[in-house]
Design a protein around this nucleic acid. Structure first.
Length: 124
DNA sequence: AGTATGACTCATT
DNA sequence: AAATGAGCCATAC
C-alpha cells in the first residue's frame, strides 16, 4: 500500500505516518495554474507558520516525487523567486511561471498580491 | 549523537 | 526604513 486515501489535509498531524513533506506536496499540487502561494502560507496551513523553512526543504525534495509538484508556484512572502537557483536551471522557474501567465520582473512576481493563493482561505 | 545549514518569517533595534 | 537576531525543525555530515 502506498498511502491511505487522504481525507482532509487541513490541520495536519505531522507526527508519524504522514510526513510533513507529503502534506506540503499535497497542498502545493492544489495551487491552481496561474496562481502562486508562499512558504509561510503553506506552513501556516499545516499548523505552524514558523515552519516555513521546512516547506522550502520539502520543495527541495519534491523534485524526485511524483506526481510533479509545481514548485515554481511557491515563492517567498515578497513574491520573490528565491528558490529559482534550486531548479535545473536558474531560469527554469521563471520560464514555467511565464508559461502559466505569470509575469516575473527582476525575480519578483508582478501583481503577486492579486494572484496569491492562500490555502487557508481558498482551500477549505 | 551533536552541530550546522537552509527555497523563511517576524519582532526588535 | 533598513539591518539584525531569533525561532523554527527536518536533513546532512
Amino acid at each position: 500500500m502506498k498511502k491511505p486515501p487522504e481525507e482532509k489535509p487541513r490541520v495536519i498531524d505531522n507526527s508519524k505516518n504522514y510526513s510533513f513533506f507529503e502534506n506540503v506536496w499535497e497542498v502545493v499540487r492544489k495551487i491552481p495554474k496561474g496562481r502562486v502561494s508562499t512558504y509561510g502560507a503553506i506552513a501556516n496551513y499545516l499548523g505552524t507558520r514558523s515552519s516555513a523553512r521546512m516547506v522550502g526543504w520539502a520543495m527541495n525534495a519534491s523534485f524526485s516525487v511524483k506526481p510533479k509538484v509545481p514548485a515554481q508556484r511557491v515563492v517567498n512572502r515578497n513574491g520573490m523567486l528565491t528558490g529559482k537557483i534550486h531548479f535545473a536551471t536558474p531560469t527554469l522557474m521563471e520560464e514555467l511561471l511565464l508559461k502559466e501567465g505569470i509575469t516575473v520582473k527582476n525575480e519578483i512576481i508582478v501583481d503577486f498580491k492579486k494572484i496569491f493563493w492562500d490555502p487557508n482561505v481558498e482551500l477549505i
